[in-house]
Design a protein around this nucleic acid. Structure first.
Lengths: 152, 152
DNA sequence: ATAGATGCAAACTATTTGCATTCAA
DNA sequence: TTGAATGCAAATAGTTTGCATCTAT
């Protein structure tokens, strides 16, 4: 079931929360609704401003905590894979990234065959470059018992 | 020419900076070298610590400014496309993202045919999910004269 | 009744800016 | 010589935490 089609049915959203083991508080439902109705991948700050329109008392820390709980519940996701700070790369040849979801390590992966062929236009959007991020488990983290806690 | 193979030749790095219109200061060369030698996509903080080993006096603001100038010169790149804060998405179906490099807008793009088929293992890395980020120009920004300055 | 959720204020962390000084070209 | 780059200190932005109170179940 795609919740996005039921954004305006509070009981549907409440159910989804309860199924995920989360209490259906007005704050949580409001945040969830805003995200379901949004199509612009809003930042926490923007979510805050939108939720405020219908629930003026809500606080920013609650927005952050709610986003985290909804994310853990799998009801929403972050666009950027890693909650990390920024990271740099001096590899200027086109390549993809293998991102380990356990330890956060990012490996380069050069395999042009994975790069999809893009049309000249996608609904008016002119593609220039395609980057592939492959999420999974690196060899270290796949071996039980030695899940490393990231580079950093 | 791939600079990564010349990380230990200061004059090569200096040339690259000058060609990009940047002065070849010791700080800049040190940052560039660290990034060329790194294979772990370091954060600014980590770059700082590494540069300090050879150039103890360097300051963090210089690291940030240097990373920015090198990025603008095209000598290094950020792994995460958008320098933005985090952004959320309630679209739980697998999809790709069209990222406008002019205004920062991110559109969902549902086209399973673009998703590459992945092998069960990539050099020991077990892929779980592939996300495609397509960088380019959105229809609004392609039309000269009305380059919008992002959603936010 | 009670674990979980909230609001407030304060604490952190990451990043940026102003300004005087230094340095590469 | 001179504009660009640096270092320092301070400011800002984004996010998290502690704690007392409240509320959905």
């Amino acid at each position: 079931m795609d919740l996005r089609h039921h954004a305006s049915e509070p009981e549907r959203l409440a159910e989804a929360c309860r199924e995920a083991g989360l209490k259906a508080t007005p704050q949580r439902l409001a945040v969830l609704r805003v995200l379901l109705e949004a199509h612009d991948h809003p930042s926490p700050e923007l979510v805050y401003r939108r939720v405020c329109e219908g629930l003026p008392g809500i606080s920013l820390p609650t927005i952050y905590r709610t986003l985290e709980s909804l994310e853990q519940a799998g009801l929403v996701a972050q666009v950027n894979l890693l909650p990390d700070t920024r990271r740099y790369d001096a590899n200027r040849t086109p390549h993809h990234h293998l991102v380990c979801t356990s330890c956060g390590r990012i490996e380069d992966h050069e395999d042009p065959s994975l790069t999809p062929a893009l049309p000249a236009s996608l609904h008016g959007f002119r593609p220039v470059e395609a980057r592939l991020q492959i999420l999974g488990q690196c060899s270290t983290c796949r071996t039980p018992g030695r899940t490393s806690r990231g580079p950093r």
